[in-house]
């Protein structure tokens, strides 16, 4: 039995350490990662995947803690992948989302994993979608993905989550405007957190008028919910909206959305693997260095150079042992 097989067998029996190890394997892109995903993939598809995003400091982690409390009241289990940024200078990271989730830390129906973004630009880490699969296969009823404090272009969570909750707070001012493209388009549910602050109602009005102008996503009209994460006010309503959205999607063709998600994922893995494959082939040719020099000397433009390289690689007969 391989290492990955053993870990998955233990994970399916409820061994949390095995789950944690599998998460490390995909996070570090270890050689067993692909084998592990392929073995556990048939066990996925049961969890409802909730994406939580929004600018930093709006209260995402605190709200996640309260939302998980709501889910636990229904006696359902939750996995959380909480992403925080990696330093572009040191490569290190300070992962602090657990600080806001202390009430969940010994709950046996909850599994929290902090994840550093490791340079991935989309607001989640490269391994986040595989981490979600692992927690799904581990039997979690809900998997929550909390993105880094995200701005306009951090929209990758919509490719992972089945429902995207965008969290905002009063005092962001023009940021609501700025969010119109990007984040404003990916939200299925919008939360105005810290709604005990006076200007919260103004934010709700702005938000609703902005959303009213939008065409709806798959016929779903995005909802706006007011919360105070520190006290838990409004979180029950947020939970209701999440379930309403789930029902809506299920009743109006979740197969179509699922197919789209799967296709997206295959395409992105294909792009990644194709690029890796081509680079590996190119490393073996001396032509690569020659072309770099030619472009450097302005004898060739970089687009022509790439066309020539690709032509060369695709025309090359496959050598033995190459994948």
């Amino acid at each position: 039995m391989t290492h990955a097989e053993k870990l998955i067998r233990n994970m399916l029996k409820g061994d949390k350490r095995a789950t944690a190890r599998l998460l490390s394997i995909v996070e570090n892109g270890l050689p067993q990662a692909q084998e592990a995903i392929s073995l556990l993939y048939p066990h996925t598809g049961n969890a409802h995947i909730v994406g939580i995003t929004g600018p930093s400091g709006v209260g995402k982690s605190t709200l996640v803690e309260k939302l998980v409390g709501e889910i636990r009241k229904k006696d359902q289990t939750v996995g959380i992948v909480a992403v925080d940024p990696t330093s572009p200078f040191s490569g290190g990271a300070f992962l602090g989302d657990r600080i806001r989730m202390q009430s969940l830390s010994t709950d046996q129906g909850v599994f929290i994993r902090s994840m550093a973004s490791r340079g991935n630009p989309g607001g989640v880490a490269r391994a986040t979608k595989d981490a979600v699969k692992i927690l799904d296969a581990a039997g979690m009823d809900f998997v929550i993905v909390e993105t880094v404090g995200a701005g306009q272009s951090e929209v990758e969570v919509m490719r992972i989550a089945e429902v995207v909750v965008v969290i905002l707070a009063p005092g962001l001012g023009d940021e609501i405007q700025a969010l119109k493209a990007g984040q404003m388009e990916i939200g299925d549910i919008f939360v105005v957190n810290k709604s005990d602050i006076e200007s919260a109602d103004r934010v709700v009005v702005d938000l609703k008028s902005t959303l009213a102008m939008k065409t709806t996503k798959d016929g779903w009209r995005p909802e706006v919910v007011k919360t105070i994460a520190t006290t838990g006010a409004g979180v029950d309503e947020l939970m209701e909206k999440i379930l309403e959205h789930k029902e809506y999607v299920e009743s109006t063709g979740s197969e179509k959305t699922r197919r789209r998600r799967v296709q997206n994922e295959i395409e992105s893995i294909l792009r990644e693997k194709a690029a890796e494959h081509v680079m590996r082939l190119l490393e073996e040719t001396i032509q690569f260095n020659e072309i770099v020099e030619a472009v450097g000397a302005l004898k060739k433009d970089p687009y022509t150079a790439v066309d020539e390289l690709l032509l060369n690689v695709t025309a090359k007969p496959k050598k033995e042992g190459e994948a």
């Binding site: 040191s90 490569g91 290190g92 990271a93 992962l95 830390s105 902090s114």
Partner: peptide, 12 residues
């Protein structure tokens, strides 16, 4: 530790 390139989780 973060500045040394490690991933540090702080629980509070």
């Amino acid at each position: 530790l973060r500045d040394a390139g490690m991933e540090v989780i702080y629980t509070g």
